[in-house]
């Protein structure tokens, strides 16, 4: 029985390593945020966040030893988040500019408040 095997061989070492890795990544992303990396800064920040998230999922949440359906569930969830973001963003990027919202009137923009 896999469950009982777990209890015998259960070791806290992977957790400690994961925790240290997470702390390292946090410090790294914080430090990099204060340097001007231009267009790369967003990609790097997201890559680090993804690495952190992945280690939480795999080791803290034990997805590495879960059966297929659970993995598939999570993969599909992330896929759908990306889907809703991507297809909405292509709309913003390709739209006729005047049909985009002009911004906040509070910041001195031209649009008057709608009564």
């Amino acid at each position: 029985m896999a469950h009982n095997d777990h209890a015998h061989t259960h070791s806290a070492r992977p957790y400690i390593l994961t925790f240290m890795w997470l702390c390292f990544c946090t410090v790294l992303t914080y430090t990099l945020a204060h340097k001007d990396l231009g267009a790369w800064s967003f990609a790097i920040a997201m890559a680090i966040a993804a690495a952190k998230g992945l280690s939480v999922i795999l080791f803290f949440m034990h997805l590495y030893d879960q059966p297929g359906p659970s993995r598939l569930t999570l993969a599909i969830a992330f896929f759908f988040v990306l889907l809703v973001i991507t297809l909405t963003l292509t709309d913003v990027h390709t739209r006729f500019p005047l049909s985009l919202p002009p911004g906040s009137f509070r910041s001195g923009n031209v649009v008057p408040p709608i009564q």
Binding site: T26, T29, Y30, A33, F42, A45, M46, I48, A49, K52, G53, V56
Partner: peptide, 11 residues
């Protein structure tokens, strides 16, 4: 939160 932190605080 791991995703919120860089997205909100570290733009």
């Amino acid at each position: 939160w791991i995703f919120l932190f860089p997205l909100l605080y570290l733009v």
